[in-house]
Amino acid sequence: MSEQQPYEPRIVAFLCKWCSSAGSDLAGVSRIQYPANATPITIPCTGAVSPMYILSAFNKGADGVLVSGCHIGDCHYIEGNYLARRKMHLTMELLKFIGVEQNRFRMSWVSAAEGAKFAQVVTDFVNDLRPLGPQDKLKKAVRT
């Protein structure tokens, strides 16, 4: 890796398999272009996202973490996204509280039909992350 390389935010994106992952598939089928910064991890439901995942992703050097699932009322498991909404709210508030920039964590509702929205969510997130530079607050120091 050369030092001249411009900063590219690294995002871990937890996508619910029923909606946001399917929504990202639709973005693909529609060939909507968006930045390649977010690596998706498909999970059964946003309700399955433990706050530990968020903290761990930052700890492992993520510049941003995205959690995306079904709109309220549309959860395949009926209540998973309600549980997620509460957990993620608390996680986000705690991160903000210790001074982590608010824009490093993002949550969105993207249905299987919202391919364009998915692309927009990622694009916006990357744009919001760029000015923040690399995340080094929670990042594990690399042994040299």
């Binding site: 309220i72 909404r85 509460r86 957990k87 608390l90 993002r106 509702w109 969510v121 916006d124």
Partner: peptide, 16 residues
């Protein structure tokens, strides 16, 4: 328990 339950009125405006 706080994190095992939810209310319909929980805030969600932070979600895009």
């Amino acid at each position: 328990s706080l994190v095992a339950t939810f209310l319909d009125t929980d805030p969600g405006d932070f979600i895009r």
